[in-house]
């Protein structure tokens, strides 16, 4: 059988994602799993999982492009690209116009601006710090004894959102202890945590054009998009289709263009 499909493997610091597409860029299958300590193993596993999910045979996949921190650990990839490149490529495919792409990842955030032709103009990544990333949310959830899956629904219920002012995760935790002592409700704290994430993100760079959010954090917590739109004075903020695999999808698109 001729190879008619393309794959992208995004080995991120926290999770590894795979996307398989056809020549027209249709997403046929995706898979996500923890990256763990063995990046090469995670890439194999997640690729196999995506093939299984789509009931696809390996031989049908021609070119493969890897991306993410572990991009060089993917032995079966034909080429690799940075996650900045792949997120821009993936998001622009869905929204071919001038965009600001904001990826909120497990350990870092990226803000990428592309022009109407899809060429990148600037990009920024957060500094070496958890502020505004998935790691920050996880740490707070852990401290409060909450499951990650319940945060979005909790925040939706909040009526008296509290404000968390510190940059630093440790300082924020101390601040939250103080809030709890004063009787703040957990849902109001969780909403405050999301607010803090949005603030840390939008202070990273100028945000112009339509905003496209990607990454696992917004996949599970869509309230972030609503809050961001509020804070950007009504600028259009959308969540990319299949937000968690936009990087892998962009890599697969790149593979289809090799």
């Amino acid at each position: 059988m001729a190879a008619d499909l393309f794959a992208g493997i995004d080995v991120g610091s926290t999770t590894t994602k795979a996307a398989i597409i056809d020549r027209d860029g249709r997403l046929l299958a995706e898979a996500v799993d923890k990256s763990g300590y063995d990046f090469a193993g995670a890439a194999d596993r997640v690729f196999a999982a995506a093939l299984a999910a789509g009931n696809l045979e390996r031989q049908r996949v021609g070119k493969v492009v890897s991306t993410g921190y572990g991009r060089r650990n993917v032995a079966f990839a034909d080429e690799s690209r940075t996650e900045i490149f792949c997120h821009a490529t993936g998001a622009y495919f869905h929204f071919p116009e001038a965009l600001t792409i904001i990826d909120i990842g497990g350990q870092d955030n990226k803000i990428i601006r592309v022009n109407a032709q899809g060429e990148r103009e600037t990009f920024a990544m957060n500094r070496k710090c958890a502020a505004g990333t998935g790691a920050f949310i996880e740490e707070i959830a852990y401290r409060l004894g909450l499951e990650l899956g319940e945060l979005n629904a909790m925040a939706e219920k909040s009526e008296h959102e509290v404000s968390i002012g510190s940059f630093c995760t440790v300082f924020s935790c101390t601040e939250i202890l103080g809030l709890l002592r004063r009787g703040a409700k957990p849902e109001d704290i969780v909403k405050g945590v999301f607010r803090s994430v949005v603030k840390r993100v939008i202070e990273m760079d100028t945000i112009a054009g339509k905003v496209v959010l990607t990454g696992g954090v917004v996949a599970y917590n869509p309230i972030i998009a609503t809050m961001m739109a509020e804070m950007l004075d009504g600028q259009e903020v959308v969540i990319a289709p299949h937000p968690q695999v936009v990087g892998a999808f962009g890599a697969a698109l790149t593979a289809s263009r090799l």
Binding site: Y69, R81, T82, E83, I84, F85, D108, E119, R120, F123, M125, K128
Partner: peptide, 22 residues
Amino acid sequence: RCYSEEQAITKIEAFIEQLGER
């Protein structure tokens, strides 16, 4: 202690990719 080599490599590579697009 103030340097994340991985992050720096990614940024530099992404920058060169960006120059390549132009």
